[in-house]
Structure formats: structure tokens, C-alpha cells
Design a protein around this nucleic acid. Structure first.
Lengths: 343, 343
DNA sequence: CCAAATCACCAAAGCGCTTTGACTGATCAT
DNA sequence: ATGATCAGTCAAAGCGCTTTGGTGATTTGG
């Protein structure tokens, strides 16, 4: 059933039917009701493609996901972010189209999206510090919003980010307050902007207390379980091993915990751990009392908000870029305690 | 730059330009080259919406993801599956559109997709044993393919599945061969079809050896880390605790391992563990030697293949449903060993 | 040498929708 | 009574593409 048929069926013109369904005022209430009813009855839905062609709006938003292994780390996060964003989209009537592309085809993928005009806007994931994709999208002129930020790009654009610096600074402060001085940073890959900011926060806290930054305690890699495990094994063999670990992901934190327990030590007594917790739906940080002390910020919530932000931007053309900075909460669990007295 | 402009620029008709670009024979090689060049130079891409409207093909495939908590478990899997599917799509020139919908709106979501005509086919995730969505899609007549199967639906449809029954039967056999008799099944929610089949495999192996099935050792729930942990804690308090665990997901297996290590036991010596391993890119089963003995089947590969299967089906209309059954490999890691002698 | 076939191209219709501009009666102010 | 206003409706153009059904020009075959 299409518009034409529906109109014929009702003995009205396509114009009137279209206007009735789209809530234009120049249609009498009576006809509007009649049209609405017939539409419902025949389960009529306007053909998206025709509508898109006529209006110039695709009612869809694109996510370009890099396939490269370097970015693989965003995978665990991805599901939750997407489902948050999806909620906002479906509320606003947008579809979400995903493009998975190999790294080198990235820029052409963006060009293609804009040339093919099948999306009204784009969400950009996992930005690096000077991410060329941002400049590219600015040039192209398609609305976009970034999940995260790019430190070295100064021209304004829309983004939503967690305050990674402040979160890690507070976490480090928390450990310092407990008397820890040897704090190991188990960070994500530091070409990713968020990881860079986290390190800045960590360093700022140490510096503020006059604690020297020991490069031996600085790690940056893909945030896997094994990475967390290995890092603890390695650092505990140092002459002056760390008494605390600040971990960038709950997945790596699992590895950290495994290494601790394997060494017959007790987490929260012998060694303290704080992790960042993206509040993933399938990797909850314990039930009632959190297992880990954590800087928590729901990535699902971030998805929801970022999508909303992009939609607003799309629907109010000419508006200036929108930004939002979320603060992570520091929730205390059982993985932290006073630094043990070394004798 | 659109077709019309490009044609004008070249001094040709739209027809000729269109045909040249789409490889029709009735265009001289010379003009084709000229057109191709101009198109490249101006970075011309046909407008998807117009093309879709004209051809009736959307060049897009829909994934409807249920948002309900009951299905949350598919989240960790989801990212990998999608990225596999995405590879196939982008090779074949399809877009992927995701719809996240609340449970109760499921059926209307499918109707909407078909009425709005913005996809050429649908991938269905996480089927239950008698999944109403399958019957619905059969009725609607839109091409679709299922990741998994629905035991109780007999009319043919396209699917791709891992041989869950045989995988779990072999895994159970393996444990039985090692002398284990008390084997605990840490399964996923058994309204999901795959979980049901896994239990069947487990039961078949036990029955074949005349080992009694103890309901106290049968568990089914969302596959979280905590679930694995709790299950071990609980079962180790039994009078005759299990000496082996057969686990449905590597995430739950992490919890199992944690509980074992916390009890001062050694995995692989005191207690054996086999897990199903979806070969997730961010949760690798160890590096060289796998940590866990596992039934392994890459969910990413499944995504790739299922997408391919659906595309074939879409592009050869009238073809009978396609199906593919993947066998999981049983890889031996360090988490299994002979059953300890009870004295 | 002429009809038939082939080649290279084109004009125009159509996909299903929105939107512009025009057209009726009816209502209103003068 | 008369022109202006307005509510309700419609025909037709247009969005950017594909595809049908041509048309002349060239080649081919008898």
C-alpha cells in the first residue's frame, strides 16, 4: 500500500493525504481522522527511500567503525555504546547505519557516506590526539559528533567525553591518601586521546604531592585480561614493586586481580586496585558491594547522550557545536585499602 | 555533483552516463572511459536514496536487536559478530542498519522495516526455541537469516549455527575420559536455543556412559563473571562437589577460575574446566598455550558467513533456504587434567 | 545496392514521496 | 453587493536515479 493507492482508496488527492498524515494545519480535522484511520487499517508506512529523496533527509545516522586491530579495544565497549545510542535514535525516529571499514579506507568511507547521502550525520569513535577524521569531516560539512575529544584539534566541533583527566587524578589522589606511593598505571594505548588524558591526570596528582613519576610503572597497551595479568607479574618482580594499580579497564582489572591472587596476596589488603569501569551491562562490577574501587561512567549513557546531542545538532541547522563533559563517579569497593607498611 | 550535472558536463545524456557507470554493453569503450574519468575526478557517487527508489533495492541489511535485559547476554558477543558481518557487507556493497527495540515492540519493528522498505533482508539474533519472530518473518516474506536455530520450528528457513550439541557432547566426553564423574554444567539461559542444545549434548554424553544426571549440577543463567563465580562457590559446598565444570562462556569461565583460585585450589589439577570460547577479539583465551581447554568457534567468522549467506539468498531470488552448521574445535589448554582421586 | 542488423546514443516515464502554486466555495468587512 | 480573506482541497513539479522504447548512423549480408 502506497500513498497513491491510499489516496485513491479515500477519494482524496495525494497532497491531502500526505498533509493529513504529517500534521499540516490546512486539513480539516474530519478528513485527518478519516485518513489516519485508513492508514492504520492498511498498515501504511511511507517508503523511507522515497521520503528521503523528497525531503533530503535520510533519517539515519552513520557510525564508521575502524576494523584495524589497533582499535580492537573498542569492541567490548562498543555493544553498550551502540545500544545506548540506539535508544535515542529509535525515540527520534532515526535509523543507525554501521560501516565497518579497514583503516586505510577510512577517509574514503566518510566521503562515500556524504556523497551517497544515506545519512544525516556521523558519530566518530575512539579519536586519537590529532585525529585526521575530524578535520576531514569539518571540511566535508556533514554534521558529526565525537565520542571523546582530540586534544590537538582546536577548531570547535561537537563532542561528548568523560572527564578522564579529573577521574584519574581523583583516583590517584585517593590512593595517595591511603599512603600509596608506588602506583602503577595500567593504561590503554596512549595514541588514543582518552588514554593520554588519563595519564595526565595520574601525573598531575603525583606531581602535586611531590611524588616522582617512575617510568617503570607506566604501561600502555590494548586493554585485555592478559595485559593486566602480565603487567602485575612483571612489576611485582621489581626491587620496589608497586602497592597499587590504576587500571584503565575492568577487563584488564580482571587480569590484575588474577595475578594478585595467584601470588597469594590479597587484593585490597596487600595490593590496592582502582579501575575505570565503563559500567558494561555484561561485566558488572560486583553485585551489592563493588568488587573494585572504580571511576565509573556508563558508556551506555554516553551513547544515549551523544546520539541525542547529534540529533539536536542535525535538527537545528546553523547551531554552534555542542559539547558535554561527564564526570565519572569514584565508587569505593573492596579492592583498595591503606598501603601496607614496608619494613 | 549529481548524474544530471555530470551528464551536462560531459555533453551526454543521463542515460548514457548511467549505463557507462553501471557497465552496460551499449556504450562505446571510449565514452565509458571518458565518463569514468570525469566521475572519478568529480568524486561522483550515485545518491543511494534515488538509486534505491529507482531500483527497488535498498542495498542494506537490517539487524534487529532486542533491548531487553533477558537478551543482554548477547552484548559481549555482539561486537564481534557485527564486525564479521560488516566485513561481508562492505565487500558486497551493502550497508548495515541496526534497530534496537524494546521487546514488546519487536514484531512491529519487523513490520515497520518491511513497510518502510529500507532493508533488503534481516538478520535475526539469539533465537529462542520456538521463536515467534521466525514465523513472523516467514509470513512477511522478507529474506532473512538466523544466527542459531529454533528447535521447535520445522518449516525451512536460512540459518547458520555452531553444532552446540556435538561440541558439548565432545567436551563432556573429554572430561569423562579423564575420569571425571561429577561434572557441573554452567549453562546460558535455557530458553535460548543454543543453551538448550548444549545441555542436550552434555546429557547425551553422560547418559551414554551410564553416569547419572544430577540436577544439583545443572545451572542456567545470564553468562556473567559473577554467575560463574557464585556457581562454583555454591557447588563446592555440596557433599559430593563437582570435579569439573563445563562452562558456556569465557566470561563466566573467568568467574569460575576466580572462585577456584580463591579456594586455594589449582585449576587443571584439583578442578577441571572446559569453556565454550567464542574467540572474542578482546577476550583471547591466553596467548600461546590456551588458558582454558575450550570448544572454540569464532563468532566473528560466524558473522562473516551468515552475512554472506543472506546476501546470496537476497541476490538469487526464489532460491531455497540456505543453512550451515559449523563444528567447534576442541582445543586443549591448561585447565583440564585427570580427576583427582578421592580418598 | 538495398534491407536488415548493429551500434551508440537519447528523451521521457516512472519509482513514492513532499511541496509549490492555484483553485474553489464560503465567510468577512466595507 | 463587492472585493478581500480564508479554509480546504488538488494538479503538477521535482527529488536523482534506472529503464523502456525509441532514433539516427554505420555496418553487414544477400
Amino acid at each position: 500500500m502506497n500513498l497513491k493507492q491510499l489516496a485513491a482508496h479515500l477519494g482524496l488527492s495525494q497532497t491531502t493525504v500526505s498533509r493529513a498524515l504529517n500534521g499540516y494545519p490546512e486539513v480539516s480535522e474530519e478528513t485527518r481522522k478519516r485518513v489516519q484511520q485508513a492508514a492504520d487499517q492498511h498498515n501504511y508506512r511511507p517508503n523511507t527511500r522515497a521520503k528521503a529523496l523528497a525531503t533530503g533527509r535520510a533519517m539515519a545516522i552513520g557510525h564508521v567503525i575502524p576494523l584495524s586491530s589497533r582499535h580492537e579495544m573498542m569492541n567490548p565497549i562498543f555493544g553498550d555504546f551502540i545500544s545506548g545510542a540506539g535508544e535515542s535514535y529509535s525515540n527520534a525516529g532515526y535509523d543507525m547505519v554501521l560501516s565497518l571499514v579497514a583503516d586505510k579506507e577510512q577517509s574514503s568511507a566518510y566521503h562515500e557516506m556524504v556523497a551517497k547521502r544515506n545519512v544525516d550525520g556521523i558519530v566518530l569513535h575512539a579519536p586519537e590526539m590529532r585525529d585526521p577524521r575530524i578535520t576531514l569531516l569539518q571540511k566535508i560539512g556533514l554534521p558529526f559528533a565525537v565520542h571523546g575529544r582530540a586534544t590537538e584539534i582546536t577548531t570547535p566541533y561537537s563532542w561528548l567525553d568523560v572527564n578522564n583527566r579529573s577521574a584519574f587524578q581523583r583516583a590517584t589522589d585517593f590512593l595517595l591518601d591511603l599512603g600509596h606511593r608506588r602506583i602503577c598505571l595500567v593504561n590503554g594505548q596512549e595514541n588514543m586521546d582518552f588514554a593520554f588524558r588519563r595519564r595526565r591526570g595520574y601525573e598531575a596528582a603525583l606531581t602535586a604531592r611531590g611524588v616522582e613519576i617512575d617510568p617503570q610503572l607506566l604501561f600502555a597497551d590494548e586493554m585485555t585480561e592478559v595485559y593486566g595479568y602480565e603487567t602485575v607479574r612483571r612489576t611485582q618482580r621489581l626491587d620496589d614493586p608497586p602497592t597499587a594499580y590504576l587500571v584503565s579497564s575492568i577487563i584488564a582489572a580482571f587480569g590484575v586481580r588474577r595475578a594478585i591472587e595467584e601470588s597469594e596476596l590479597v587484593m585490597g589488603r596487600d595490593i590496592s586496585v582502582i579501575t575505570h569501569d565503563d559500567d558494561l551491562s555484561y561485566l558488572r562490577n560486583g553485585a551489592d558491594v563493588p568488587v573494585f574501587t572504580a571511576t565509573r561512567s556508563s558508556v551506555r549513557e554516553a551513547g544515549r547522550k551523544l546520539a541525542q546531542l547529534l540529533i539536536t545538532q542535525i535538527e537545528t541547522p546553523g547551531s554552534p557545536p555542542l559539547t558535554e563533559l561527564l564526570e565519572a563517579e569514584l565508587t569505593v569497593g573492596r579492592s583498595t585499602g591503606p598501603a601496607p607498611n614496608r619494613t
